[in-house]
């Protein structure tokens, strides 16, 4: 009995240490974000701690700031286009990796996944050189191409995971019932990939929304939101930026939660 109790308490003590450690790590991760969110409601702006007067003024200023709103629209545009490109190219790549045995497959797999590991600077710089070489003017289009190609790997990995979980007997059943290969793809394979496709889309969207490195090299006159923020930061920290960052943070958390739920469901 005594032994049992002391055993339990030692477990509790160890758990206590672990909890303290975990709390420390979480504080390190999230305290800055909490401070940022707090300051976005602080009338005195970034000066003066602790915040004394709460206000929504900075959000009102934000709503009437044309440059920021333009940047938001640009970012949404880039992100949606990047999702379209990455999924349209990632799906065939994932299918090829899952279904077809071809020479150099291992190499192909690594090459497709490489941009995931490659520093954004390298991707951005190389795409910039390509654009210059091809005589393309830098604009949102070059950013879209950059994001799209850099994020194909994300689409491929997500869809590959979905394909691996898929019951192949369903496709055989479809063929067995007289549906052609093409019809089977549209009626069985694709509907089965609905969740991984949506999940991949959400992840690509969020990644594109806050991408800086690749965008930095490829941007023309129209700024994306992260670049706009970064540009303003050079002129000093303003509470308005705290406000827009808070909104981005909340939207990202929302999207990631949706992505995570879809992923566990599939």
């Amino acid at each position: 009995m005594d032994l049992h109790v002391s055993g339990q308490s030692s477990v509790r003590r160890r758990f206590g240490w672990l909890a303290t450690y975990a709390a420390g790590v979480f504080a390190f991760l999230y305290l800055p974000i909490v401070v940022l969110i707090l300051y976005s409601f602080n009338r005195e702006g970034v000066g003066g701690f602790p915040p004394r007067h709460l206000t929504l003024d900075w959000y009102r200023m934000l709503a009437s700031d044309g440059a920021i709103l333009d940047a938001v629209v640009n970012s949404l545009l880039v992100a949606l286009a990047a999702v379209a490109i990455a999924l349209a190219l990632g799906l065939p790549a994932a299918l090829a990796l899952d279904r077809v045995a071809f020479p150099g497959k291992a190499l192909f797999r690594r090459l497709v996944l490489l941009p995931l590991i490659l520093p954004g600077i390298i991707t951005g710089l190389s795409l910039l050189m390509l654009a210059v070489f091809a005589g393309m003017k830098l604009s949102l289009l070059t950013v879209i191409i950059g994001h799209g190609t850099a994020l194909i790997s994300v689409g491929t990995t997500e869809i590959s995971a979905g394909l691996q979980k898929m019951d192949r007997a369903q496709e055989e059943a479809s063929l067995d019932l007289g549906a052609s290969y093409w019809r089977t793809f549209w009626r069985v394979t694709l509907p089965n990939l609905r969740l991984p496709l949506v999940a991949a889309g959400l992840l690509i969207f969020t990644l594109s929304m806050d991408e800086i490195a690749v965008s930095f090299f490829l941007i023309g006159r129209d700024n994306t939101l992260p670049l706009e923020i970064w540009g303003r930061l050079r002129r000093g920290l303003t509470p308005e930026i705290n406000a827009v960052s808070t909104i981005i943070f909340l939207a990202s958390v929302g999207l990631i939660l949706v992505w995570y739920r879809l992923r566990t469901r599939s």
Partner: peptide, 17 residues
Amino acid sequence: PPHRRQVNTVFQHYALF
């Protein structure tokens, strides 16, 4: 090819859609 055969299969784990 399988879809041209007048043969149908009941799969071990049913493989319903």
